[in-house]
Amino acid sequence: MMANHHDHSHGHDHHEEHEQLKVLGFWIFVVTDCILFGTLFATYAVMMHSFAGGPTGKELFELPGIIASTFILLTSSFTSGLAVLAMNKGKVKELIAWLAVTAVLGLAFVVLEVNEFTHLMHEGATMATSGFWSAFFTLVGTHGLHVSVGLFWMVALMMQLKRRGINAVTRRKVTNLSLYWHFLDVVWIFLFTVVYLMGVM
């Protein structure tokens, strides 16, 4: 029963294999995050008309800012893809540069969102205003939080790339990060459609 397989089970191959495992695990994590957002969307859908006499989305949403954030995030999803392309070509500097562009776009997105939230609160729509606004702030805010965590991660990763270059570990990390970033863009598309577009109809 005991056999001498695994002839090449150590050294780089083992490492590569192990890093591949982590990519699958991260995929599964992203799917669990889909469920997380799905639950928030379900709550939003149920609370969609629970204004309790307070302001409605239609009254307060300002589409121009939202459209700007949408295209910014979409572009950042694209640039994070370009980062992966640079990595596959083995170009560390280009990789870091594209990640930096992605991070700047992400930061701009977060700033716009914070702006939007302050504006809304100024207009009298807070978490405590009504079921609708509770659901709104939680759904959009959770997405914003995810983007912020992604930025934190991106900075750490750029530092590691600078120090260690492209290897099995950093390669896996860049792959996962770009996957995460694309995922956040997809969530935003649904947010944009369900919350904002349907909100102003």
Binding site: V84, N88, N167
Partner: peptide, 19 residues
């Protein structure tokens, strides 16, 4: 650790065109 380009063919996703 050295660089591993084109590892097993399944890691270098996509091309500029597809993006």
């Amino acid at each position: 650790m050295t660089q591993h380009q084109n590892h097993g063919g399944h890691q270098d996703h996509g091309s500029l065109k597809s993006y």
